[in-house]
Nucleic acid binder design. Structure first.
Lengths: 201, 201
DNA sequence: GTCTATATAACGATAGAC
DNA sequence: GTCTATCGTTATATAGAC
């Protein structure tokens, strides 16, 4: 197996570090050290920190939507497809903290150009498919806002995990992605206000 | 009216800058410049950058929950109180972008100690009241997860605004907090999957 | 393609005059 | 309480040997 190129390793190290600490929180020295390289060597592969950051983001976000798109466009019934989508999203967010954090950082720090590029190359297709599904399932709501709400509550349940640990009502199973997925699916199926009593372990 | 103290002005400038660019993205020189002070003067009021940051966060988050608590503990019917709470939260997030961004930054960068303090001093009471309300309104769901979902979709509709502009389904009224509030209330009242057709302008 | 060495600027923080 | 001046460190980025 041919060892991966330095450029590739730099990118992957950079993605992890930028997700952890953000653009300003990571130095070129940090990246070099984690790659076992000297600082100067990085500048052979990337003109400056900005170019490295952009390349890292492109790599980090590329090919992220494919599995979601496949589920969104499956031939199962609408309702089932929405639940499948949320479930898959939960599993992806759980196993890929890096992706989860980078989205949040770009929402905070991304300039207009970067957000536009992100929207077009990563989220456009998925959003369109999810909007269509929402419009068919729930013609009474604005499809884009409904889609945004569903994504939002899913994302937030993962992103707020570090804080939720210290909040009233916390239970250890809230850290289990399957518990979160089941809760979200129940919310979608029965609505947030669901008065029928069910047993809980 | 007595001019506010330097310490106070430093804190307020720092809050704005940290919300915009994060801890690593703001230098002591930046803060000094925006205050019309010299760098050295800041160190008369705060021992180091870390202490200034902590004081700024305490100030930024103090007294944030009172209005929400008042609504959560009002004497209106449960259902109405939940809708009022979401509506107030929308208005607060809309008029206070700084607070909105600081929460997100702390979720990303806050260490365990800071998150624990934030949970206890800012969010504990509100969370408890919201959990109780959720438990009564919807005994079929885990109260904390339901509360988190509601907070999550509300927060996300505001935090994703810069990206949503470039996504399919965007409409200009999605930037209007009242539109978002109305959508969220409709979702809570009728559930996310709401098949009855209603007219939309 | 990676290294050493270095230029240049910005950083956090301190000392001491006023 | 604010200033000027400066220390030591770290940052981005470059030049040139190998």
């Amino acid at each position: 197996m041919p060892r991966q190129s330095s450029r590739q390793e730099i990118l992957e190290v950079a993605i992890g570090l930028f997700a952890d600490a953000g653009y300003a929180g990571v130095s070129m020295r940090d990246i070099a050290r984690f790659c076992g390289l000297n600082v100067g060597s990085i500048y052979h592969h990337f003109r400056d920190k900005d170019e490295l950051y952009l390349a890292a983001m492109q790599q980090a976000f590329s090919g992220r939507a494919e599995r979601l798109l496949a589920v969104l466009n499956s031939d199962r019934p609408d309702r089932r497809r929405l639940l499948d989508t949320v479930d898959l999203l939960c599993r992806q967010l759980a196993e890929d903290q890096t992706f989860c954090r980078l989205i949040q950082r770009e929402l905070l720090d991304g300039d207009e150009r970067r957000l536009q590029q992100l929207a077009q190359t990563v989220f456009a297709e998925v959003t369109e498919a999810l909007n269509r599904l929402c419009a068919r399932l729930s013609p009474g709501h604005d499809p884009a806002l409904l889609a945004g709400s569903i994504i939002g509550m899913t994302l937030h349940l993962f992103q707020s995990a570090p804080l939720r640990r210290f909040l009233p009502g916390y239970r250890p199973e809230h850290d289990d992605p399957e518990t979160l997925s089941r809760h979200l699916q129940a919310m979608l199926e029965r609505g947030p206000i669901f008065t029928e009593e069910v047993e809980r372990p």
